[in-house]
């Protein structure tokens, strides 16, 4: 009896400890930032957000994240297709390389791009001769975003392509459809859910990216200052309210995207 009692106390203790840890570490800080940003009222929140530099930073981030998403949808779809459908030397090596951007520290990624595209590198010099600079300008930010989000689209499409029933494709060929027609009418539709959820993850991560971007963006207000770097600057210059307002906007964006992606995935596995 004492043994059972003790075990019940133990399990109750474990449960409370784990749940408390969960709530304190994850739920509490997120509620805290929403509370802080709205603590001076709605007007102050809107005021912090519509401050020209803050608003321009948000718009710039959204614009560049959209470009990065478009790039990654194109090269990600291609790479996923090639890695699943074709057998060629080095295929499994390339497949393991896909995860590299997730493994590398973002500050290291920033440094890599800095070295590769800097004014002393041949890429930088070539661009200079053509009349534009990459580093500390918008192209470098897009490159950083594309790099850190590279695996999302590929990893979202691959399982769908693996599951695809070859008989559907064969039926299409038997009925006389061309290769291109089969691709666009049979294969592409089955890849769309993966492309969409991958693209949303790319967009969300690009909005949030800091480490790789801060080193290669010039961080000039209203020109190359992205939202996450703006938040960092406001924290450094002791304006937590301004930082919190922009943070809440970004967070809400990312949470909505995350929930849509999760919803799509559960619907797919259940359906």
């Amino acid at each position: 009896m004492t043994n059972m009692l003790r075990s019940r106390w133990w399990s109750w203790g474990f449960r409370s400890a784990v749940m408390l840890y969960f709530v304190l570490l994850i739920v509490f800080p997120i509620l805290g930032i929403y509370g802080q940003s709205l603590s001076d009222g709605w007007n102050a929140f809107v005021h912090n957000l519509t401050e020209p530099i803050a608003w321009k930073a948000v718009m710039l981030t959204v614009k560049l994240a959209l470009i990065a998403t478009a790039v990654n949808v194109l090269i990600g779809t291609m790479a996923a297709w090639v890695l699943i459908r074709y057998r060629f030397p080095g295929r499994s090596f390339l497949n393991s390389l896909v995860d590299l951007p997730f493994a590398l520290p973002t500050a290291v990624v920033g440094l890599m791009i800095l070295l590769l595209l800097g004014p002393r590198s041949w890429v930088g010099q070539g661009a200079e001769q053509l009349g534009f600079t990459i580093l500390f300008h918008e192209p470098a930010i897009v490159v950083a975003m594309v790099f850190v989000t590279f695996p999302f689209v590929i990893r979202a499409i691959q399982p769908l392509l693996e599951e695809l029933d070859p008989s559907e494709e064969e039926a299409s060929y038997t009925l006389g459809a061309s290769k291109a027609k089969t691709f666009f009418r049979v294969i592409l539709p089955s890849m769309v859910p993966g492309i969409v959820s991958g693209a949303m993850l790319v967009f969300s991560r690009s909005l949030a990216e800091f480490g790789a971007v801060v080193l290669v963006a010039g961080n000039i207000p209203a020109k190359t200052l992205v939202a996450s770097v703006y938040i960092f600057g406001e924290i450094e210059s002791d304006n937590p309210a301004g930082a919190a307002a922009v943070s809440v906007l970004l967070l809400t964006f990312s949470f909505v995207i995350l929930w849509i992606v999760n919803y799509m995935q559960t619907r797919r596995t259940n359906g």
């Binding site: 969960f22 994850i26 739920v27 509490f28 800080p29 997120i30 805290g32 930032i33 802080q36 969300s204 909005l207 949030a208 990216e209 800091f210 480490g211 996450s228 938040i231 960092f232 924290i235 937590p240 930082a243 919190a244 943070s247 970004l250 967070l251 990312s254 949470f255 995207i257 995350l258 929930w259 999760n262």
Partner: peptide, 21 residues
């Protein structure tokens, strides 16, 4: 669904939360 939230939070914002609290 709450477990995944840290994935959606920009690291900068994660740091800011702790500074604010």
């Amino acid at each position: 669904s709450i477990v995944d939230l840290p994935f959606a939070v920009s690291p900068i914002i994660g740091g800011l939360m702790i500074v604010l609290l």
